[in-house]
Amino acid sequence: MKLNFSEVNNFKVIEIIGRIDSITAPDFENGVMKFMSDGVTKLIFDCSKLDYVSSSGLRVFLMAQKKLSTNKGMLKVCCLQPAIKEIFDISGFSQIFAIEDTIESASRN
């Protein structure tokens, strides 16, 4: 798993590449929480290259959402591959997160 950090239209973007399983989830959590500690309020998870996620990764998505809600921030999840979207649907995460098809739509306020 690898994370790339960038910025689009005032949104901070975390691109997730590879697999988030019980082995890589701690790195994912550390990377996300460190990035968010700088007072990030508008965040996009770019999941176009996320190939696999288990409950250990889903919990980090939820932690980020909770943290941003507390700060009146905004979290968007974009570009989920169909198999990952199915896991989000099953977990009820598709209702919790603002899910967008492209980075462009996600970064449009």
Partner: peptide, 23 residues
């Protein structure tokens, strides 16, 4: 099973693993 209809604020962190196995 966790209640998957709760909001992010209400959802507990964790507890999804066995639910996912079932699904």
């Amino acid at each position: 099973d966790p209640d998957i209809n709760l909001s992010a604020e209400e959802r507990k962190i964790g507890g999804l693993g066995i639910f996912l196995i079932r699904k």
